[in-house]
Nucleic acid binder design. Structure first.
Length: 566
RNA sequence: GCACCCGUAGCUCAGUUGGAUAGAGCAACGCCCUCCUAAGGCGUGUGCCAGGGGUUCGACUCCUCUCGGGUGCACCA
């Protein structure tokens, strides 16, 4: 694809005597409105260099610049030089590259030969999968797709919370009040009941807490009874989680959770010891981080058992050895910012230069209208319920608006789930939000169904128009404002994907495909396709096709289906 | 108390490495289906960009202080 920005740089470079290209590029910006051009070169900073006022610099340069046939106009407005892309060239480069690259349009090979790990979702075993978990799950999945798209060899890691004192609690609770048959009938809920009951009782009874700690120690020591119970709880939980993953269309390459790393810790602790990092404090073993402005990292509890900081460090070292990653990404809530800063610092202090390759991608909290989520208090909204309800609402809408659709159930699933995922990936991931059924189930405006609907519309046009990919078209016919505007958004797509990857921010893609969708709908409403005169019809049909391709790719990068009809 | 994050229209949020008049969606009102899927399009209004000070030719954007909200800070994860 033609890099128009680079062409602006070249054109200015020719007449600027003395400025280097990087400098020029840094001065190029996008004007607030396309009436002012596609690119603008601001001359303020040149004023100092040339000791002239920016206006006359702009005026003089504008006269000298030759934009070749890349630009149809170069105008001087005050201190700015505005570049207007040659519309026919724009149409040609966008359409020809999308025709050529198809579903790969927008991708690069920046990840070639590089490994990227994405750890996400990571629910706690024996606890319900609730709306609090959706963020990590959906953001992580999208990052996986984006990295993969850019050529990285990418692995999805589900770091299950399958270890820790909470398991001591569960085992203790099971031994006191549990009933295998009851639990098997509805595993997660029954285990949750046990967990809640245990917590209530433990508030009154210190001995229970002691029992929980005892059972966790036994588990870590390999006690057979404890291990068997643990394995069983893990299995039934995973089965439940997979229901939700199936609905969301998400898979993992590995489910090695915290337990997997338990036997990898002694070695790491020994290494820390040898490197002189460990200190004893109040009976526990710590690494002091005061000089880095952080509280100490707890490596071992006073009873000798380990904590999750130690496990995360052991896991990172294991992953470096096992995968030799280029990036090791953790999609975990912002509450754990400090925890990640601490253990990544420890990795650095251990002398590993890959500490910087470990990236915490934080996101904001989900709360309910009546307060924070609390598994312990039973205040949760199950993710499965949210998804089922979204599918149900979608089905109602289909019955109402398109009752003749033949695979209603399937489409309802794709659209309903898509709506949930889309909403999750629409805002900056760092923002907190309050869950509301009303908002979740509204499908109008800038939503997933809006984009999917538009994609389906495009598809319908292609079918009716009997579109052929190998048709040659006259690019210069696509010169209406709404056509050019759509082409511009399509042109930007590759840069948007790269930006999303660099910032670990799927919402950048979400926002952009909404822009494409809006632009397409304007085009759709103002430019007749099927009834247009032959050559124009072909050209417009081609524009519909390339839009459909990009929308599908965009949705796919978010982990959302793009049905052909809805 | 200390650290980090957030504060933009009635609500939910965008805002490109500081740049030309701060933008969307929702909500409200009006219009557009003998015409390609109306989950759509068009039109109408709203802002001391939390507040003070500073840096700069220029600040929603950078620095600093204040206020408001959130999160975290040793044996949970």
């Amino acid at each position: 694809m033609i890099d128009f920005k680079q062409e602006v740089v070249n054109a200015i470079f020719e007449v600027s005597n003395g400025l280097d290209k990087e400098e020029i590029e840094s001065l190029i910006e996008t004007p607030p409105s396309y009436d002012m051009g596609d690119y603008a070169f601001a001359c303020f900073r040149l004023a100092k260099i040339f000791r002239k006022d920016p206006k006359s610099i702009a005026e003089e340069l504008t006269k000298k610049i030759d934009g070749g046939d890349f630009f149809e106009a170069i105008e001087n407005v005050g201190p700015y030089i505005n570049f207007f892309i040659n519309k026919s060239k724009l149409a040609e480069t966008v359409i020809e590259s999308i025709k050529e690259r198809g579903a790969k349009f927008g991708s690069t090979n920046m990840g070639q030969g590089r490994k990227a790990l994405v750890e996400f979702s990571s629910p706690n075993i024996a606890k319900p999968f609730h709306i609090g978990h959706i963020r990590s799950t959906v953001i992580g999945n999208s990052l996986y797709k984006i990295f993969k798209f850019q050529g990285f060899d990418t692995e999805r890691l589900n770091h299950l919370g399958d270890y820790g004192t909470q398991f001591g609690m569960l085992i203790a609770a099971y031994k006191k009040w549990g009933d295998m048959e009851v639990i098997e009938s509805d595993p997660i809920n029954e285990l949750l009941k046990l967990y809640v009951k245990f917590n209530e009782e433990a508030e009154k009874d210190e001995e229970l807490k002691e029992e929980a700690r005892y059972w966790f120690k036994e588990l870590e020591a390999g006690n057979e009874e404890a291990l068997e119970l643990w394995q069983w709880i893990r299995d039934v939980s995973l089965k439940e989680f997979n229901k939700v993953y199936d609905l969301l269309g998400i898979e993992f390459d590995s489910y090695t959770g915290e337990s997997f790393y338990s036997d990898k810790m002694p070695r790491v602790i020994k290494e820390m010891e040898e490197k002189g990092l460990l200190q004893e404090s109040e009976g526990a073993v710590i690494i002091d981080l005061e000089e880095y402005g952080m509280p100490p990292a707890l490596i071992k509890k006073s009873d000798g058992s380990t904590l999750y900081t130690t496990r995360d460090i052991a896991a990172a070292i294991y992953r470096k050895e096992h995968y030799d990653f280029y990036k090791n990404i953790y999609v975990v809530g912002s509450q754990q910012n400090l925890h990640f800063k601490q253990w990544i610092k420890v990795i650095e202090l251990m002398g590993y230069d890959w500490a910087d390759d470990c990236v915490h991608v934080p996101f904001g909290m989900v709360s309910l209208e009546d307060g924070t989520l609390s598994t312990r208090r039973g205040r949760v909204v199950f993710l499965e319920d949210v998804l089922e309800k979204a599918i149900e609402s979608t089905l109602e809408i289909i019955e109402e608006r398109n009752p003749d659709l033949n695979n209603k159930e399937e489409v309802a699933k794709e659209v309903g789930i898509g709506a949930i995922i889309f909403q999750e990936l629409f805002n900056n991931r760092i923002k907190d939000y309050v869950f509301s059924w009303e908002k979740t189930l509204s499908f109008e405006g800038e939503t997933g169904p809006y984009v999917q609907y538009t994609h389906a519309r495009a598809n319908s046009l292609l079918k009716k128009g009997n579109f052929k990919l190998d048709e040659e078209i006259d690019h210069s016919l696509l010169n209406q404002d709404n056509e050019v505007s759509l082409l511009r958004f399509l042109y930007q797509f590759p840069a948007v994907v790269t930006d999303a990857l660099n910032k670990y921010e799927p919402s950048i893609i979400t926002r952009h495909i909404v822009e494409i969708t809006k632009a397409f709908n304007k085009f759709y409403n103002s430019c007749p396709v099927l009834s247009a005169e032959e050559e124009l019809r072909k050209a417009r049909l081609m524009l519909v096709y390339v839009t459909k391709v990009v929308l599908k790719t965009g949705l796919d990068l978010l982990g959302i289906a793009a049905p052909d009809r809805m």
